[in-house]
């Protein structure tokens, strides 16, 4: 019995020193309650950058505690903006890299920019100049950027409603390049205000688009501008697969996939969808495709783009630009 007692007390003595210094419970008090201090100044590894050559910019800074921070880079000419956010004690290549992409459109041009670091709860901000020597290049199949106006191979239809405008414009609204398509009008007898057909033959000698066969590796992207205080526009894309590649889309026995966008925002917005996620629809309701029921991006024979709006709600307007297929979601 004595031995048992001694053993138990030895065990207790061993445990007497138990401390768990590997971690602590909850958020750091230091982070929550100490005053902010900038330890390492806000810097960029380049004062000018050529994104077209594959260069990127790395921003760096460090603080005395973990903070919520934001770097906003603004083009002095275009007013384009890139916003990078994070919550950490340091900004480095892992969380503070800019590849030339845009958050707030228009897309950056060759121009001077100002990078501004702000920290939540801190009134001071930190500024850096940076120059874009060449802009980011997005690889993919461009369906339309309207820089050369209307392609003669496209088919356009616009209703004869009031205040109709279905034309390429060149003004300060352009989010990419210098031009975009304006779609507007009042059609009080039909939801369709107008449409454009983009046939595959406009891009290659083949009857189908030169895209990958894997629908998970094909992304359709475009920039759409919502006009405030107008009838909400619907933009409907119909991807018509010419499965037998005979140059004719047969709706009775070939697949059509649809993507309808409710333009319920103001300003430019990037819309991206993976091709395998688009579905067959009739009047907005899902239906079974009529063909092989497989997403075949390499068999797309025609893309129809409709501008729709509720006929009872009057004038509808939106703008569109930079329709492009890419192999991953685009960062324009």
């Amino acid at each position: 019995m004595k031995n048992i007692t001694i053993a138990v007390f030895c065990l207790l003595l061993l445990n007497a020193c138990r401390k768990d210094n590997s971690k602590f419970d909850g958020p750091s008090i230091q982070d929550l309650y100490s005053n902010f201090k900038l330890i390492d100044n806000f810097k960029c590894d380049k004062d000018s950058v050529s994104f077209a050559a594959g260069e990127v910019s790395h921003f760096t800074a460090s603080f005395n505690k973990a903070v919520k921070w934001q770097i906003s880079i603004t083009g002095t000419t275009s007013k384009a903006q890139k916003i990078i956010t994070g919550q950490s004690k340091t900004i480095d290549a892992n969380n503070g890299t800019w590849n030339g992409s845009t958050t707030v459109f228009p897309i950056f041009g060759v121009e001077n920019c100002i990078a501004k670091l702000t920290v939540e709860g801190v009134t001071d901000s930190f500024l850096l100049p940076i120059k874009i020597r060449s802009t980011k290049v997005n690889n993919g199949l461009v369906i339309a950027d309207f820089e050369n106006g209307f392609n003669s191979a496209w088919t356009k239809f616009a209703q004869s409603g009031a205040n109709m405008d279905f034309n390429v414009k060149a003004d300060t609204y352009a989010p990419q390049g210098a031009k975009y398509l304006n779609m507007a009008g009042t059609v009080n007898w039909d939801w369709c205000i107008g449409y454009i057909d983009f046939p595959a033959t406009a891009y290659s000698a083949s009857n189908t688009l030169a895209l990958a066969t894997n629908p998970d590796a094909v992304f359709f992207n475009c920039l759409i501008y919502g006009v405030p205080n107008t009838n909400s526009s619907l933009v409907l894309f119909q991807f018509k697969e010419d499965e037998n590649a005979d140059g004719i889309f047969n709706a009775a026995n070939e697949d059509e996939y649809d993507y309808q966008i409710d333009v319920n925002w103001s300003g430019w917005k990037l819309v991206t969808i993976k091709y395998s996620d688009v579905t067959s629809m009739v009047n907005g309701q899902p239906v079974t495709p009529k063909g092989n029921s497989q997403h075949n991006p390499n068999k797309i024979g025609k893309i129809s783009m409709y501008h729709l709006a509720n006929k009872d709600n009057g004038f509808a307007s939106c703008k569109i630009d930079y329709l492009i297929f890419t192999s991953s979601p685009i960062e324009p």
């Binding site: 210094n21 602590f24 419970d25 909850g26 750091s28 008090i29 230091q30």
Partner: peptide, 10 residues
Amino acid sequence: EIRGQGTFAL
């Protein structure tokens, strides 16, 4: 304490 709360200090 065995483990700190919001800090390694006990």
